[in-house]
Simulated assay, not measured.
Amino acid sequence: MPILSVITPVYQPEPEHLMAAYESLKDQEIPSGWEWEWMLQEDGSSGVAKEILPEDERIRFGQGRKGGVAITRNLALSAAKGQLVKNLDQDDILTSGVLARDIQAIDGNDGVRWTTSRVLDLLPDGSLVGFDNDPEHGRLRTGVVVEHWRAHNFRLPVHPTTMCIERKLAVALGGWMAVPGSDDTGLLTAASVVADGFFESEVGLHYRKWPGQETAMARHTEAVEWNARMHLISERAEFLAQAVAVANR
C-alpha cells in the first residue's frame, strides 16, 4: 500500500502550534489505497512532542543528538516508509485535502516528481494574507523555478515549505540541504533542475507568522551568511543541471 510520509522537525515546540498542526493532518482524506504517516523527528531527545500529542498509530516519533533543522529532517527521511515525502513545519497548518492534491499532482501527471501549493500567511491576529505573484496552476517545467529564483534576487516563485516530493528523488539529491536556514530552498531548487514539478493553485498551507519562528530572527537574513548559502544553493543547482544535460545528450 503506498504511503505519504509527512516530515516534521521538532525543537522546543509551542504546544498549541504543534496540536494545530496535528489537527490539520489527522482528518486529511487521501485517495483510496493510500496511507499517511507523520514522522516527528526531535532535534534532541527531550521527548516533548510525545508528551504534547495524543496517541495515534500513524505518528512515528524519532530523537537524535542536536544537529539543526536540515539534519533533523534528513533523519526523519531516512526512516520514512513513504513513496512520497512532504514537509510540515511544527507551527504550520495544512488545509483540507492538500495531501490528496499532492498525490494526484505527482501520481496523475507523467514526469512530475514534486509539487508545491499556494500559501496564505497566518498572522498573529488570525487573519490570512496571500501573495499576488503565484505562478499559474499546473506543470512547472524543469529549470523554470531556479531561473525565476536567480532573476528575482533569490526569491522563489513557489513556497518551498509546501513541497511534496518522491522519496527516491529527495534521497538522490541529498535530502534537505545542510545550510543554516534555507534548507528547503536547497532541496526545491535542486529538484527543479532535474525534474518537472507542479503548482497547485488551491491553498495548501497556512504559514504561521509569529515572533518565535526561525525566519523572523535577524540572523536568518544576516548578509554574509545569507549570501553564502544562496551562492552554494545556486552552485549546486547549476552543476546538477549540467549533469542532467550531459546525461541527456
Rank of each mutant, 00 (worst) to 15 (best):
G181Q: 09
R150P: 00
A151N: 12
T142C: 06
A190E: 01
G138F: 03
W149P: 03
G186K: 12
D91M: 05
A170K: 04
M163S: 06
S182P: 01
T115W: 08
W176I: 08
F154P: 01
G82E: 14
R101K: 11
W149K: 10
P135C: 15
A170E: 03
G108T: 08
A105V: 07
G82L: 13
N133Y: 08
A170F: 03
D102T: 06
D125R: 14
A100Y: 08
K86F: 12
V158S: 05
D89F: 06
R167D: 02
R167A: 07
L84N: 00
G126V: 14
V129Q: 14
D184I: 05
L187G: 02
A195D: 06
L156M: 09
E136S: 05
D110C: 10
V179G: 11
S127F: 00
D92C: 04
V171D: 10
T189G: 05
V98E: 08
R101T: 07
G108K: 06
A190L: 04
R141K: 12
V158D: 03
G97H: 11
I93R: 14
L120F: 10
V194R: 00
Q90F: 02
L84H: 03
G143L: 05
V85A: 13
V129T: 13
V194H: 00
N133C: 03
D125S: 15
D196F: 04
E136I: 04
Q90Y: 03
